[in-house]
């Protein structure tokens, strides 16, 4: 199966290792992976901020970049949700573009759900953790997978998975919100990190680059010994496709 990787701008810039893990995993499970070099951003920051003309233009651009491919996979639930749910209505007054956006929505997959639903990979059976883990459930995964799904993937092989008291609590990032209302965003971050730290696990599974930027930076500022990894990195390490990282 041929798969086009939609790396997302944040993963591309800040978390190349996640992209690397995704590529090697997809190949490991028999996919041919392409990386269309023209890709940039799906337009979500503009969409969330109310700049919908700009967001529509960027989404339209995405539909052209990924037009040649039958299947698009991304390691970000947030960007997947943008492309799949919020994006198409932005192009409603331009029928051909809208049509293209609906096609893109239809063929775009969030990485974990792609493994589960398209490749039938038993993630729970393949993952190996040598230590207790906890997790952050990204808010924008809501229409893609549930906190229970995520727990299910982590829980295989008798792993010690420590569920935070409120598994679906927001990290406080929220895009432009994080810099427009930094005090409130920081307070939400405090609430989140307190719950994660209280689990006693120091490894946090976080499948979202934006949330990771917020929580890693927050944990470092507060001197908390939390480490954050995308599930793809853990799975690639478990299968020997990536050198284990600290």
């Amino acid at each position: 199966m041929e798969v086009a990787l939609f790396a997302t701008c944040l993963t591309d810039t800040f978390y190349p290792r996640v992209g690397q893990a995704v590529v090697r995993l997809l190949r490991h499970f028999g996919c041919r992976v392409c990386f269309p070099d023209g890709q940039t951003c799906c337009g979500q920051p503009a969409y969330n901020s109310g700049f919908h003309a700009e967001a529509a233009a960027l989404l339209h651009r995405m539909t052209r970049v990924f037009a040649p491919y039958a299947c698009v996979v991304t390691p970000s639930a947030s960007c997947a949700a943008m492309v799949k749910h919020h994006g198409p209505p932005l192009l409603a007054d331009n029928p051909p573009a809208h049509e293209a956006a609906l096609r893109l929505a239809d063929k775009t997959w969030e990485f974990n759900t792609f493994l589960r639903d398209q490749l039938n990979v038993d993630v729970a059976g393949l993952l190996r953790f040598e230590e207790p883990v906890t997790f952050h459930y990204p808010c924008h995964a809501r229409e893609l997978y549930s906190p229970a799904d995520l727990q299910g993937w982590l829980r295989g092989n008798g792993h010690d998975v420590r569920t935070p008291v409120h598994a679906d609590l927001c990290c406080g990032f929220g895009g432009v919100f994080a810099v427009e209302f930094p005090e409130v965003s920081g307070a939400m971050l405090d609430d989140k990190l307190t719950e994660l730290a209280a689990t006693g696990a120091t490894l946090v599974i976080c499948n979202e680059a934006a949330c990771a930027l917020q929580m890693m930076g927050g944990a470092r500022r507060r001197g908390l010994p939390l480490r954050f990894k995308h599930l793809a990195e853990c799975l690639a390490e478990s299968l020997g496709l990536l050198e284990p990282a600290a």
Binding site: T13, V179, P182, G186, G217
Partner: peptide, 18 residues
């Protein structure tokens, strides 16, 4: 506005596309 509340991760030397 960012660094008042959290540190900022410095992008690693190579991007994914590199």
């Amino acid at each position: 506005a960012w660094t008042a509340q959290r540190d900022l991760l410095r992008p690693p030397p190579q991007s994914f596309r590199e």
